[in-house]
Amino acid sequence: MSSLDQLTLPQVAEQEARAPLVSARGLSKYFESRGGFLAQAKPPVKAVESVDLDIGRGEVLGVVGESGSGKSTLGRLILRLIEPTRGEVVFDGHRLQSLNAGEMRRFRRHMQMIFQDPFASLNARMTIGDALMEPLSLHRGLKGTAAREAVVALLEKVGLSGDHMKRYPRMFSGGQRQRIAIARALASNPSFIVADEPVSALDVSIQAEVLNLLQTLQAELDLTLMFISHDLSVVEAVTDRVMVLYLGRVMEIAFTDALYSKPRHPYTAALLQAAPGVAKSKRYILRGEIPSPSNPPSGCVFRTRCPFAIDDCAKVVPPLSKVGTEHYKACIRDDLDL
């Protein structure tokens, strides 16, 4: 174990440069069901269970998994849009859970979110100009001409023009609306953006445009991105590292190339094989569906659908173990050729 004082100066500098922008430790979220009139309280839905993660500055981390795997809940937890049941998030050295409401509000300018459906996240009665003006005055105190100029600059940054300011969201196509949502997220000059299925509702040609835009902006502004998607080919194209979630738990996390070329967890392998257009060597179709998160299987949560499950899988919750450089998997079977 090397402690800080044993490192030489350049090493310290390197250590700091590589310090993650966002970290989470033991992050869990249980949704309680209250049990209404005549209805019995059900066990809580364990949406996210003990997730640790670090996202480096300027890194694009992909989060993949089926619906119900907890990927959107994780995104909201990271931004503290919802409170965790356990665990904490550290953003740029600040423990988010220790900030009070006012501090948190001011802090939000550093972290933004882009959603799947921009039509639902834009106010239908607000012109695009007003929608963009709001964060500019709120977070950056811009008013009047300065604010208008900033709006035009933002619109141009996302490939639209200042002429669009006076228009309403319904007057735009899906791809343009997603550009507006991106412009709005960028308005406060954030360093971190959670993009939750940002291109899932778009046609493939528009999807390519928006992905290119996100990548250009990410590089230009040195943004740190958490890219949530169910589309494995999109994630492969835009991310540096990928985290695979199943029933709220991390199954595998690795550099994108390593994960796609040599998955080490049976669930990752199954996901890749199910994805259309991915070359199949050994094809097996995962049987059944994701179990209820209020009653997850004991031991490894994936064991009920895993073709390689053995008796021990029901007994122990597999820890994330290192299998390569920055490559971790939560599976007790080391003898698999996936």
């Binding site: 196509s173 493939v204 040609s205 528009i206 999807q207 390519a208 445009e209 992905l211 290119n212 990548q215 589309d231 080919s233 999109v234 492969e236 194209a237 835009v238 190339d257 796609y260 257009g277």
Partner: peptide, 26 residues
């Protein structure tokens, strides 16, 4: 051809990211 080029795909042989080629216009 253009539709096929929009599909995000595996990285190229050199391991670099393949820039997606959207279809210009609407």
């Amino acid at each position: 051809r253009a539709l096929l080029d929009c599909i995000p795909s595996r990285r190229d042989a050199s391991g670099g990211r393949r820039k997606l080629r959207p279809i210009p216009g609407t």
